[in-house]
Design a protein around this nucleic acid. Sequence first.
DNA 1: CACCAGGAATGTA
DNA 2: TACATTCATGGT
Length: 208
Amino acid sequence: MRDKLLDIYDKLLERYSNQHWWPAVTKEEVVIGAILTQNTSWANVEKAIENLKQQGICSFAGICNIDTEQLKTFIKPAGFFNQKAEYLKNTAEFFLENGSINGLKKQDAKTLREKFLKIKGIGKETADSILLYALDKPVFVVDAYTKRLIKRHNLSKNTDYDSIQRLFEENLEKDTALFNEFHALIVRNAKEFCTKKPQCRGCPLEGV
DNA sequence: CACCAGGAATGTA
DNA sequence: TACATTCATGGT
């Protein structure tokens, strides 16, 4: 299984090169983006992020202090603004009360994941995205594209979230940089060959 | 016009 | 446990 996964990774990387997800931004911005991008295109998330930056509130403290109704207007381009405003408040408050980014990084990933999942607005994918992209934990992020990839290539009997996550984490070295790039590459590939183009002609995974 | 995007909460059976 | 519905903007 390890060879199959690495084969997929190598072919995706060869085709698309590094996706450099979430590089030159603050870690607080990564967490905020993880909430805003729930079922939303990244282009719309960037508009919301830009609004927050212009207001000088693209941070946990900024989110906590701003009026909720005001916050809704700033994140409006990202959609679901009523619930996401609440989710951002919940998340920012949790981070500020628990050591923020640097403080929380001292805890292990498993413990953090359980705590994140108790926050209203953070599910498994968002929790793992925060662990990987904001806290640099070697946690594999599973999304709809990843599930589809595993199903189409028949790489696992169980296709629930945790089973697929274990498939990657137990067969690959727990490397933050690897998991970071792998997930980004899966998304990059899926957007080109799985969404609006049912056919797989030209897909780097054709025949894998 | 329909469909979906770097999901999660809630309700039903 | 396994689905179905709701949330909302903006691009294709």
